[in-house]
Design a protein around this nucleic acid. Structure first.
Lengths: 209, 209
DNA sequence: CAATTTACTGAACGGTGTTCATTATATTTG
DNA sequence: CAAATATAATGAACACCGTTCAGTAAATTG
């Protein structure tokens, strides 16, 4: 009786069809401007159908959120081959910045947007699940910073503060950039992007022994 | 003929009545959740009336945006009395972080929100005006960093990169905090706030000669 | 083939920002 | 002072939004 299996497969396919359409539209137009109705139109179904596969718009958000982390983590795979922790830390920062520049809409969803993050506050439900990826990235960062401390490569003494500082610097730079606040510096796009990497270099020079 | 003057005054008063109601509601409920209709209700006028005093919701946003900078700049007044540029830089960072923690909704409006920032992209209209305050703050930061360089107090050599790095660090920390992303560090609110200041201290220690 | 389960629809609900013809008020003019 | 004009405010209407749900059509089962 392969009917149940086929149904399950079809259900999964439909979910992915919706998710693919939603992803494309989110990345092109942004979260707010992408309506359920427009997604339904795109895949030629009625709006109500989407609610048979996703509880609400937030759940679509979470699904795309998770996709973003999968892409990001894939880019970070190569880091495991770098033995020197300081070089690894630097490359981690570079990859982070590059990911944000290459995928600004994903980055926005993952690290800037507020809207559907309620689940993060209540600390239950799918809100935390979609951050398990983020947690592993943060763990990796802390591990690398700890290794730099252990090998006496940096002036940093507190791993927690050190990791937060590194993350905050790169997040600060790319989010100010993505949300147009760096336009105050009166530099063109290309120069700004270079400046972000220079900022990372400066930071690493400052903390290196 | 004092009629014209009175009318002008009344118009200004009405604008401020609307702005006060809007500000209160924005700060309490956030930008998105505050509807024009609700503002109109609060001041006991019809929704259409608001459009006689503000072009659209974005203009209301800009007005509050500017108010935020006025508050922030007031807090920064005391900085002018600090002669040592490095101490001034540190205090600038402290005030910035404290402002964000005390006025998270203002901070959100000023540095994180995307929505009505179109005007920043097109570089004309009221979009730039509401940033003139921000520009002066950024100028002050650059000046202070330059002074630190001139007096040989820091390892930084490029004032543009140095200023951006400082701003990005504090913005990164407070925006990750405001948007709940620091929750993955598993620390309570009070500890997190302390960590933000520790991050600033660490940064300044790192760049000090 | 009939009964039942499943998938989907699309109208409807209560909301949003915004516009505009209409109305009420206040001022100016004859 | 009354009529004409200018100003201010209205609130219904428009085109959207996320979401729900009674109803329908198709597929599966017995």
């Amino acid at each position: 009786m392969g009917v149940a299996e086929r149904k399950e497969r079809e259900k999964q396919e439909m979910r992915e069809t919706i998710l693919a359409a939603a992803t494309q539209m989110f990345l092109e137009e942004g979260y707010d401007k992408t309506s359920i109705r427009a997604i339904a139109d795109k895949i030629e179904y009625s709006p109500g159908t989407i609610y048979l596969y996703f509880k609400d718009k937030d759940e679509l958000f979470y699904a795309i959120h998770a996709q973003g982390f999968v892409i990001m983590l894939a880019k970070m795979e190569k880091l495991k081959k770098i033995a020197d922790p300081l070089a690894r830390l630097k490359e981690l920062g570079r990859i982070y910045i590059q990911f944000a520049l290459d995928n600004p809409e994903y980055y926005d969803l993952m690290f800037i947007m507020r809207g559907p993050m309620k689940a993060l506050e209540t600390l239950d439900g799918s809100g935390m699940e979609c951050w398990s990826y983020g947690e592993s990235t943060h763990e990796f960062l802390k591990l690398t910073v700890q290794e730099c401390i252990d090998k006496n490569l940096v002036t940093i003494t507190d791993v927690q503060v050190g990791a937060m500082t590194m993350w905050s610097l790169v997040h600060g730079m790319v989010s100010l950039h993505i949300r147009q606040r760096l336009s105050i510096m009166n530099e063109d796009e290309k120069t700004l992007k270079k400046l972000l990497f220079k900022g990372l270099d400066q930071m690493l020079n400052a903390i290196s022994k």
